[in-house]
Design a protein around this nucleic acid. Structure first.
Lengths: 207, 207
DNA sequence: CTTTTTATTGTACTTTAGGCCAATAGTTTT
DNA sequence: AAAACTATTGGCCTAAAGTACAATAAAAAG
């Protein structure tokens, strides 16, 4: 298991050396690795400067093409969530600060060679928030609306929000179209929706 | 640093013992911990059965209330992404399989006591996808639809999807209501929407 | 046991929406 | 230059949506 730091710096940072005394530090990825290198387990630590975003994307793609089993971690001088998200969507397995202490670097390596992914807590928190907004809180919001309705109104409202016509809803719920209208009118009033389209927007709203 | 497994099982699983020989296994959280316990660093490993979802939520909240510095990990018999997301949004720091090997359990512990968060690669991948969908692909999807429309149709469609009436759209775009209808009819045809509500659902669709 | 809320339906009326047929003028494509 | 597409509007017609006023029976709340 070899560690390769790709950095514009002449010398490795002390924490890098401390964590991985036998690591190599180079400025570029070897475009034509030997077969051995290609197949071996390698961890690439890409040192990211603010002004090398394009370089980073290219390097990641180059590594993925040339080294089959390589794991890629990115160490950023100025970490930010947007960049983290971006590079991780490209297949990078870890994203941390370039000046992370040796202990953290070791931890990162342990995680990624065991098939894990490493990122800061803040970033993950945000990810989870965003995702649960979609499935969870989103349902919560909708629920807040539906809670204002009676059982029957709820049923009607949900069908209407899917785009069904009054007649279709009537058939499904086994009531007359007139009754559907009654429930909907009441629903509009309770939720402050001006018509079924607004109702649909309320109940399908993205968070 | 103490490890406490909360599980309905009589005996700890072998991998648990292997990873943490000194861990306790109990069926319930101590509702009234001593001051020492309260302040100490404790890792709670909650063993999750399919049929104990409510128990899990309650237990998490109880621990968070009673133990200030506790870290909580969930070990599920049948892990699934929805549950993982849910519990992590409640503050759980790790989610893994109950039968994870000792090595993985150790790794998890190391990560969370160092302020990290642990989850499987698949889940994280999905999280990232979802997040990037929100900002990127989602707009892409909508764009795919709008791309099929002429400039004017697009303008009309967007307003209609917001819930505006034909009359309102006409006023905004300075055309007659009749023209709005014409654009909309054409739009429905091109996008295969049966009416403005379906159009709205298409253009407001969550990813 | 009253009072309130919910569920249901009726008749009638107004407003919207959407489709059909048709026309004109400007733009783009072939 | 001819054909196809785009933007605009008109009249007409049907169906759907939504409101107003109203009534009845069952269920829930107080």
């Amino acid at each position: 298991m070899q560690d390769i730091f790709i950095s514009p710096l002449q010398n490795a940072l002390v924490s890098w050396v401390e964590a991985f005394p036998k690591a190599k530090v180079t400025a570029f990825v070897l475009a034509d690795p030997t077969k051995v290198q290609k197949e071996a387990d390698v961890v690439f630590w890409l040192h990211m400067n603010e002004d090398r975003q394009e370089w980073l994307a290219n390097t990641i793609s180059l590594i993925q093409k040339k080294y089959k089993n390589a794991k890629i971690a990115v160490l950023a001088n100025a970490p930010n969530q947007a960049e983290a998200l971006h590079v991780m969507s490209l297949g990078v397995l870890a994203y941390s600060h370039a000046y992370s202490p040796a202990k953290v670097l070791s931890e990162i390596k342990m995680v990624i060679i065991n098939g894990g992914v490493w990122m800061g807590q803040d970033l993950l928190k945000r990810l989870i928030e965003v995702s649960t907004n979609l499935a969870g809180n989103q349902a919560e919001l909708v629920n807040q609306h539906l809670k204002l309705l009676t059982k029957r109104e709820k049923e009607v409202a949900i069908e209407a929000a899917k785009g069904l016509s009054n007649k279709e809803i009537a058939r499904i719920l086994n009531i007359t179209e007139r009754t559907v209208k009654a429930h909907l009118s009441s629903t509009f009033e309770r939720l402050g929706a001006k018509d079924r389209l607004h109702l649909a927007l309320m109940l399908n709203k993205k968070a």
